[in-house]
Write a protein that binds this DNA or RNA. Sequence first.
DNA 1: GACACACATTCGTCAAGGCGTATATAATGG
DNA 2: CCATTATATACGCCTTGACGAATGTGTGTC
Lengths: 123, 123
Amino acid sequence: MERFFLALADGTRLRLLNLMGEHEICVCFFVLVLGQSQPKISRHLAYLRRAEMVTARREGKWMHYRITMPPNEGAAKVLQQTLAWLKEDAAMQQDWTRLRRACCSPAKFVALAGAPAPSVVSG
Amino acid sequence: MERFFLALADGTRLRLLNLMGEHEICVCFFVLVLGQSQPKISRHLAYLRRAEMVTARREGKWMHYRITMPPNEGAAKVLQQTLAWLKEDAAMQQDWTRLRRACCSPAKFVALAGAPAPSVVSG
DNA sequence: GACACACATTCGTCAAGGCGTATATAATGG
DNA sequence: CCATTATATACGCCTTGACGAATGTGTGTC
């Protein structure tokens, strides 16, 4: 349980989880939206992976991350509630806005030309 | 928000929060039930106090601690859900059992003779 | 196979915080 | 006021993990 909360106890990781929500997102979008170095993003994603809070899927050159609900019911509820809390936060909402902008007109972001857009998690 | 989760990211602090639940508890009971050194308990309680997750009340020589729900609604819900999760954990339930034993027959525990028993928080 | 791209990992440095031990403070009782 | 009890804090040591910078790995393309 310690591990679980340690995974949540970092601003960058909370921002990543907020962006994922119920979507599957490519690393390049994280880097763009958070405006942080790629190694930093990657390290935090690795931490979340080790904590079994997200899973990664490779698609060609790109890696997609999504949240995986913990098997334990209590933990899942806490995570859900945490995500709901994040949605109410102003800074987190800004991240969301930035993500939408990057998705809907990726042409504006040269770095993302052709990058796979975030998609809603099916199952 | 980081601070909030950092406060939850420690086994000892989770055990303390679990014991408090909706009760107000004296430090000496924490020491007895967790079986850890008094300074350790005290340090973790101080941490929770700084995180504004608990408040202390003095009663003569004794200090009583209780959980204070954060003003932010989202945070409060996460904390509530966390406490619910703790209740389902076997180790946490054992702590509860030990607490009840100490309360109902304090005579068995010489160290606690005369210590103020835990009480349900009124408001 | 050489290159470019997307991402992951490693390395050295640094701060936060956990621990045991020792000591300080606060209240009560003689 | 001095001793005792209950709790808090200070100190030194050690581990975890965050960071930037550099480097490694995997996958398409020519």
